[in-house]
């Protein structure tokens, strides 16, 4: 009996070409390589019946057939595995442009962002953050700050009262007094917080706003120290140098008193839209602590001097974020809050 290796090759090639999935592949493998009834196994069983002189040739042909079948099956197996992997990947493909999933982050209020910034800067500069009540006695809100009876600031037109001698603090300067009553100089204090004035709300006014008061009392403190401190603060807040200038002004609790401006970053002082052509941006009020104020809290003005300054966080925020209406700051509109 002779074996037609050539036709077996052809038969295998035909059969393997029609394999489409893992199952038909397994059947094909069993049919050809099955240990009991595989076609290739059958051929090997014929080996014993081959004449000895033909045995070498038969063995060679058998090996070729076995390799051919195994290679064919492996090739198709790999093809099927690839196809299945591709199908899985196709199935598992996602639209990577859909939004990612995580609890949405909330936002700090713009006032808080600035307030924390300001606190960080002054703490680095050696200042302690302090606080005081928002409903103040007229002593702290006015008398101790050298604002005498009859001064316009005390009037009910400007200040909100809860009783004859209790008012909503109209400046955080009140904290100066608390701080100086608690401790003797040298002291460096900042006091950020809410203050209240009887202003009807409009695009540039709120009856409540946030102010930062600063106080530095020690031996030998001068206006020059005030200027240097303001400049250092502006440098740290905005990350760029800008000269600070003083304009003489009047606040009852300082003498000499001034307002302070920093030079416009946009135009470097030549005048532009941001600074309304003046080259300077108004920051706040300042001056040397009035001797009456020092004496009120038992500090000898001949031995100690001090500077104080105050500025509004709201106005800084309005400028920094280019707000067109500062009423938005306290309207709690999420369309606004989510921008910060």
């Amino acid at each position: 009996m002779s074996t037609n290796f050539e036709s077996l090759h052809d038969q295998f090639d035909r059969e393997v070409a029609s394999v489409s999935d893992a199952e038909s592949l397994r059947a094909l493998r069993d049919r050809w390589l099955g240990r009991k009834a595989g076609l290739v196994t059958d051929v090997r069983k014929q080996m014993g019946a081959v004449a000895s002189e033909d045995r070498a040739a038969f063995g060679k042909a058998f090996n070729a057939l076995q390799q051919h079948v195994e290679a064919g099956l492996d090739r198709v197996s790999a093809e099927i595995a690839n196809r299945e992997r591709d199908a899985t990947i196709a199935r598992e493909t996602v639209d990577i442009t859909l939004p990612g999933r995580a609890a949405p982050l909330g936002h700090r209020h713009p006032i808080t962002i600035l307030r924390q910034n300001i606190e960080d800067i002054f703490v680095r500069m050696g200042y302690s953050v302090e606080d005081g009540p928002e409903i103040e006695t007229t002593f702290f809100n006015f008398d101790a700050l050298n604002i005498p009876d009859g001064h316009p600031a005390r009037e009910s037109q400007d200040t909100m009262y809860v009783s004859e001698d209790l008012a909503l603090r109209s400046q955080t300067s009140t904290v100066q007094i608390h701080a100086m009553q608690r401790r003797q100089p040298p002291l460096r204090v900042i006091a950020p917080g809410r203050v209240f004035r009887r202003d009807t709300p409009d695009a540039t006014h709120n009856p409540m706003f946030f102010q930062v008061e600063g106080l530095n009392v020690a031996e030998g403190i001068t206006l020059a120290d005030l200027r240097g401190t303001c400049e250092e603060f502006v440098r740290q807040l905005f990350g760029a140098d800008a000269p600070v200038r003083f304009r003489a002004s009047y606040f009852p609790f300082v003498e000499p008193g001034c307002e302070f401006d920093y030079q416009c970053f946009v135009c470097k002082g030549t005048g532009c839209r941001v600074c309304k052509g003046s080259g300077w941006i108004e920051m706040g009020g300042a001056g040397m602590v009035h001797p009456h104020v020092l004496r009120t809290v038992g500090i000898d003005p001949e031995r100690f001097s001090g500077f104080a300054f105050g500025f509004g966080i709201d106005r800084l925020a309005a400028r920094q974020f280019d707000l067109d209406d500062i009423r938005l700051l306290f309207a709690n509109d999420l369309r606004f809050l989510e921008q910060f």
Partner: peptide, 13 residues
């Protein structure tokens, strides 16, 4: 903030 809350500041009155 991390669990999705926005910070409000309301008028005290």
């Amino acid at each position: 903030q991390a669990i999705g809350f926005n910070e409000a500041i309301s008028l005290s009155f």
